[in-house]
């Protein structure tokens, strides 16, 4: 995909060791985006987790982990949202280019273009894009990265609401801070800056003290996903020309035989020779 100018690019640094699971972010997101509340009952997941998943009404969600490890309680919180990939799979597969990686970082969605094929949902390695299942002519919904705020120089709504865990700023800077924290508290963190390389790098970067899989992170490839399809797609013109050209040549040859035969027949006929039957 086209390389974006990374100098302006912003990113979220979400330090899960600092997340208190207060869910201010979840509510702020709903407020800024004016998303409907979901009807829930009791809790749908461990701890106080609700709603059950991200959805057309929920662009970000705090996932709770409530379990014991070596006899010690673990009560951990993990913020799910669009990762705003550097080279987003959603954007690469969309037939109408409805997704776009902006120079500021957010991967934005142009609803007026979308035809609703849901390929983006299949493609996203993080399961982010959601669909308006209740609508007759549904569109895709996902975290906007608060693009409108960011271009105005504000921070995203969730980052603004967060008391502790989210730092928002230049991506290089965020990675630097993350690495400094790892260096300063090597015993506190899992030694990994998640999102630095995942899916080819993302604009949401995580630090945590619990193994990523215990928090419910999906394993993802480090390669930018669009590359996987592009390696096949880039052969399209060649394949077209090969097959088209090959078949043209082939038929020219095969038909030539016919034509020659026919010409011979015709010549013979005009020469008054008896006509061959078969």
């Amino acid at each position: 995909m086209s390389k974006v100018d990374t100098s302006k690019q912003k990113a979220f640094l979400i330090d899960m060791t600092k997340c208190t699971g207060c869910r201010g972010c979840q509510v702020a997101c709903k407020q800024w985006n004016q998303l409907e509340a979901e009807k829930t009952e009791f809790f749908s997941g461990e701890g106080y987790q609700n709603p059950p998943a991200m959805s057309e009404y929920t662009f970000t969600r705090i996932k709770f982990r409530d379990y014991q490890k070596n006899g010690q309680n673990e009560f951990a919180f993990y913020k799910e949202m669009c990762m705003h990939c550097e080279d987003p799979a959603c954007a690469s597969v969309c037939p109408v280019g409805a997704f776009e990686k902006t120079a500021e970082g957010p991967v934005v969605y142009k609803a007026d273009r979308c035809i609703g094929c849901r390929f983006c949902m299949i493609a996203c390695p993080f399961g982010v894009p959601k669909y308006e299942w209740s609508k007759g002519l549904p569109l895709v919904k996902k975290c906007t990265g608060c693009y409108e705020r960011v271009v105005e120089g504000l921070q995203p709504a969730c980052a603004t609401a967060c008391p502790t865990a989210i730092t928002y700023g230049n991506r290089d800077e965020m990675i630097k801070i993350a690495e400094e924290r790892l260096a300063k508290h090597p015993d506190k963190y899992i030694h990994k800056v998640y999102g630095k390389e995942e899916a080819g790098g993302t604009s949401v970067i995580y630090l945590t003290s619990l193994p990523f899989d215990e928090l419910g992170f999906k394993p993802v490839t480090l390669r930018p996903l669009p590359g996987y399809t592009w390696q096949a797609l880039r052969m399209v013109p060649a394949a077209f020309l090969t097959v088209g050209g090959g078949l043209s040549a082939l038929s020219w040859i095969t038909h030539r035989k016919d034509r020659l035969k026919k010409e011979r027949e015709e010549e013979a006929a005009t020469a008054g020779e008896p006509k061959e039957d078969k």
Binding site: G21, C22, V27, K30, A37, E38, F42, F43, N50
Partner: peptide, 26 residues
Amino acid sequence: RVSEHWQAGAMTRNLPWLVELVPDMF
């Protein structure tokens, strides 16, 4: 208390976004 509700609840049990988070007594 829980983060998601406020006190006797009038201020939060009437707000759908918060009700979504902690919908009933436990």
